[in-house]
Design a protein around this nucleic acid. Sequence first.
RNA 1: GCCCGGGUGGUGAAAUGGUAUACACGAGGGACUUAAAAUCCCUUGGUCCGUAAGGGCCGUGCGGGUUCAAGUCCCGCCCCGGGCACCA
Length: 1003
Amino acid sequence: MGYEHRDIERKWREEWRKRGTYRVANDTSKPKYYVLDMFPYPSGAGLHVGHPLGYIASDIVARYKRNKGFNVLHPMGYDSFGLPAEQYAIQTGQHPAKTTEVNIARYREQLDNIGFSFDWDREVRTSNADFYKWTQWIFLQLFDSWYDHAEDKARPISELTERFAKHGWSGDDACAITGNEELDPLAEFSHSDWATFSEKHQQQILLRFRLAYLSEAWVNWCPALGTVLANDEVKDGVSERGGHPVERKRMPQWSMRITAYAQRLLDGLNDLDWSESIKEAQRNWIGRSEGALIRFQLKDHQEKIEVFTTRPDTIFGVSFVTLAPEHELIERITPPEKLEEVRAYVTQAKNRSERERMTEVKRVSGVFTGAYVKHPFTHMDIPVWVGDYVLGGYGTGAVMAVPGGDQRDWNFATHFNIPFTAVTEHWDISKGADESKEATLANSVFLNGMKVADAIPRAIDELELHGVGERRINFRLRDAAFGRQRYWGEPIPIYYKDGIPYPLPESELPLVLPEVDKFLPTEDGEPPLARATDWTYLGHPLETTTMPGWAGSSWYFLRYMDPKSDERFATPEAINYWQQVDLYVGGSEHATGHLLYFRFWTKFLHDRGWINFDEPAKKLVNQGMIQGRSAKVFALLVGLEQTSSSPSPQAEAESALLSAPILVSAEFQELLVKGTEQSAKALKGIEEAAQQHAARVFESKGISGYQLYAFDDPRTVLRRVYIPISAMVEDGAVVDLEKLRGTSSEFDNALFFRGGEHFMAEREVDKMSKRWMNVVNPDDIVAKYGADTLRLYEMFLGPLEQSKPWDTNGIEGTSRFLKKFWNLFHEEGRGGRGSDGGEGRFSVSDEAPTKAELKVLHATLKKVEEDIEKMSFNTSVSQFMIACNALQELKCNKRAVLEPLTIALAPFAPHIAEELWSLLGHAESVTGAKWPQWDAQYLVEDSFSYPISFNGKTRLQLEFPIGLSKEEVEAQVLANPEVQSRLEGKPPKKVIVVPKRIVNIVV
RNA sequence: GCCCGGGUGGUGAAAUGGUAUACACGAGGGACUUAAAAUCCCUUGGUCCGUAAGGGCCGUGCGGGUUCAAGUCCCGCCCCGGGCACCA
């Protein structure tokens, strides 16, 4: 039998499914290994060749670990709630569950084609009620918790109630944190006050402490769409979709108090085996900064303005204070005569999205409020400004501006001519701010002559002494918005009584998504769930927002441990056994979203005693992106000129021309750059052809009275048009016109103008996406070359973490390798050893292998094992090729060599390995085979061929036995006639002998 | 601007401070074949000398340095990719 990948792969796919080959054993006596892929969102587009990259890598590790004797958990599931399915539902009326179902079926088929060893018995879907029951349950636990900074963990809310009943709340208890203090700070109360508070009042207070809480939060609200928009969905104050006005306003929003965990999320990173770039991204996102909180007393008012600064040492350089446009005090402190001007500025500044305010660094804007504060040490008057370079959401929403020490403050001061002084020695403030941390302070009273590093603690000490400020650690991280005005997500298990949110009892879970007539917000702007006919609990209205996409993905790894459990999200036995994910593989785009929430929920569940570890994944690997190569042709857009007094309607003529465009080959892309002789010449040629083309088109459609503009008219433009990459000849720039004509009628009718033999397109590396028409489907590759070839090829392409454009240029190499490997097991003949995949008969010999053969085998086993451990799969594939070539050379068909090699190849190319394994006479799957251990004794060399170099440049090779001492090697090298002739009789300055490496002679 | 990667043949890429370019693609040549496909063999960084065998010089983005020896380590730049960003 020749190597027929189609038959073999089909056979084993069915066989694995039938036998349940990859089902996880319930044998907890074996050591465990948990390999997890970030689960996909099943979009309608299906998989492209970029998706399986990470799955193949993790599959290799999972299979390898099985052979190594581990009980391996390698599951797959779907993140099946999400916005695209809902938008499709809005357009078509089809229920998102239905859409999701169809998409999942397609994903499953595609995944199966590639031969992954997932345990499908453990498949999860976040949109299944028996899964989201537990997402809701975890939400209730979060709702039922507060964070105790003294013990540094989350605790049940009942313990907080007890504490209030005993001690009340003293405002500065460092043991709990609150939200939205700037709107309405929580006043202190005694234990007897607490007893007199109404139920409603008590609940309102508790809500300040819950880890899942409802509060007034700033959002981009779009009344026309009835929804909150993300920063990047807002452009210039209007929605990107539809261009409706968007306003920044405060709305009741569910949030997660992830900020309580900021320090732990930061500290935890140190012990994780994650890539440095992801860890760094998370550190930046959490953004810890140490500094001081300083209070500035307002003149003529009771209030103080609080600012956060990392440079309290520059306190004597404060020349003004800037408030964010959102700042609560602005209205109150602005004198009446200034109010109109300030309000106008605030309205305008507030409605620019945060993204815009952050992007347009250069545009300085602001307004003087007319108010003043007192300097805490000098008691001088300091003006208070409003500026949009200060963000409402960071720190206290106010800064002390030190133009001498901060460039942004310097820009602001310079723009508005606010006077200021230098705060550091030898600095020319007319050029900019001195932000150096090495500087020495000046003009700063008790800080004069001190270095920045020493001045900071000294300044804070003084502030504390005077009671005007204190040491403060600030985080950039903000609480996470948790409510969405959408249908296709987990319902939030909350009902409202007297306007207060109460948790649904656990027995009511799952709270199943209701049926609605439309998946749109109601007419009065309520979320879609408000359309349900009876969305209540015991007569109380239920929460109508749903959870965001990241809810389910924040804990799904736990469900795989015990996916069918009814009593718990996973039973303690399962959790105890499987513990953390040993290897998590996924894209780096989740660095600050999913991967942070994932860690947050894990830490929370740990705090409340549900799991006994507080990081979800020990090791994380990011696969690189497989980019596509898009193809573009150039369309010449020429206007129409009337040639008769009674022409056909112009719209008809225009549309006729649009359906038969004029396309020019890529070498003409400079065509419309006027003035060059070539372009003028080419233009003439094209113009002639185009006029004839247009005339033909018009004639065939019965349109009269038009011709094209002259081409040198400035209104003529060349525009890039994406074409499907399926219309390209191989990976080059040549367009297969026949194929392109087949893809759509406009190409069928188009005029293709080319300069040479071929019509050329412009190729570019882009993200692989439907939009650029450059998606390469794994199914096509599998059909042509087989799954094993695809798997090997994707691994062979280069290091896993590196992004690279997809091209099939090298795929023949891996395909050839598999054929050669197959032929090692088959007799010579029409298709046997050293031949193609024709008729050779299976034949392996039981003879004892030679030393050379064993050396090839063990060198390969060693290299492959080491490479899998460090996830360097491209080099392990090379090693297999080297081994295969060597064995072919040695004409080796010995079982003792081929059998271990088959086991080692199985993780990479499971189908062919399984077939060969069965041909070798094994009834069981190769999955259960014991990984062959390499043995150093077969790798021992008797001699080593030393490169002999002179001053580091290799000149010749000399072979010496391994056992020879350094001195003997040196003596023999120097005795060598060729070495002697190179030395020209002069004695060498120095001779370096590195055993089994090199000899270097210095002359 | 800051942080993290990276820069090596025509291409994808290898290389614990120790023979730079493994492996593969492509290209060129050859064998088998009526032919093609498939398969196998040889050549393939640049350049110079030589009829040849062979040999010289230059070569890992650029400029320095450390070292017997640097793609690899150090300093200073340039470029590409990714992330973050008026963060006080």
